[in-house]
Simulated assay, not measured.
Amino acid sequence: MNSSVSALPLSTLSPANESLTLRLPSSLQLKQQLPLTHALTQQVAAHRQAVRAILDGHDSRLLVIVGPCSIHDPESALEYAGNLARLAADVSEDMLLVMRAYVEKPRTTVGWKGLAYDPHLDGSDDMAAGLTLSRDLMREMLQLGLPVATELLQPMAAGYFDDLLSWVAIGARTTESQIHREMASGLSMPVGFKNGTDGGVTVASDAMRSAAHPHRHFGVDSQGHPAIIQTPGNADTHLVLRGGHHGPNYDRASIAKVHADLTKLKIPARIMVDCSHANSGKDPLRQPAVFNDVLEQRLHGDRSLIGMMIESHLFEGCQPLGSPLKYGVSVTDGCLGWSSTEALLRRAADQLRAQRTSQ
């Protein structure tokens, strides 16, 4: 892994009771150091178009965003990606599998914020190394032939990865943010807005309507300068249901209500279900039950259910940060293990194939 880009010299050293400022390389500098080949650029464009085709109903495959809750160890992440790439090739006629490469994590209070922030897992917050490591890792995943997805949490970080991504999530806590809606309106890939933590879809519906429109907003250009950003609007957005404080929202009654709400607002009914979080009661081993329920709804004719999201790693469960860490086990939310994930997706592909060939 290439991690030679470091923070630029200290620009401001303030008294102890004030903030400290350390300059980072610009997104342009990092992209120039770790560029995409023409072939990979074309691959990303093709994957983005494939996701759009699923959203628009022109591609009947199921979209599945799958991978670790967060990536903390590049070696285990690449092993997982290799497994997923082989499975993706086997089920490609019925599913589009997208690697979940989350390098930023929202925190309710404090805690580890992700690989892009603290790649050494020790609180040193070497963000220059984190951005470099994250970009290099995503490039290696692309080289395996996988589409890559992430949640964009810090808009300033988006420019370091935006050319690598085929799908982006805006999380439950940031869907209401005007800044994230403006950012989404300028992204060149499909974006899934999660419902709010209350379980309702009003906030996400407002976000999709906002992101579809052009915006002018404050931002940072590729060279790191403050700039006025003008965006064209993003028509390729959709809803991600993740449950809420009152429980799951993937059941038939909840989906029917979401349909009615979206129709009333004249928003296309394009729904992905996050099988984790409140939908699974935060129990990673309940994700297959959620997945299978949603799959059954789709097999019975609800084509608005365009996809699912699964938190999955090499081994199930989670562990606290510390030493020594178990290889291939999440350090944030608990995950489904790879063997269970593979079995779940292969069974689903068989069911989808059977329905496709019988029609």
Rank of each mutant, 00 (worst) to 15 (best):
Q230T: 15
T231M: 05
T231A: 04
N234P: 07
A235L: 10
A235G: 01
D236R: 01
D236M: 01
H238D: 05
H238S: 09
H245E: 09
H246G: 06
G247M: 10
P248L: 09
Y250K: 05
R252V: 06
A253G: 00
S254K: 05
I255M: 07
I255C: 07
A256V: 07
A260R: 14
L262H: 03
L262R: 03
I267W: 09
R270S: 05
R270P: 04
R270D: 05
M272N: 00
M272A: 14
D274Q: 09
D274M: 08
S276E: 03
H277K: 11
A278F: 08
N279H: 09
N279F: 13
G281Y: 12
G281E: 07
K282M: 02
D283P: 00
D283S: 02
D283W: 00
P284F: 02
P284T: 01
L285R: 09
L285S: 12
R286G: 00
A289P: 00
V290G: 07
N292T: 14
D293C: 14
D293I: 05
L295M: 13
E296I: 07
R298H: 14
H300Y: 09
S304G: 14
G307L: 09
M309L: 12
I310S: 01
S312G: 06
S312F: 06
H313D: 10
H313R: 00
L314M: 10
F315H: 15
F315W: 11
Q319R: 06
P320Q: 14
P320A: 14
L321P: 02
L321F: 11
L325H: 08
L325M: 15
V329N: 00
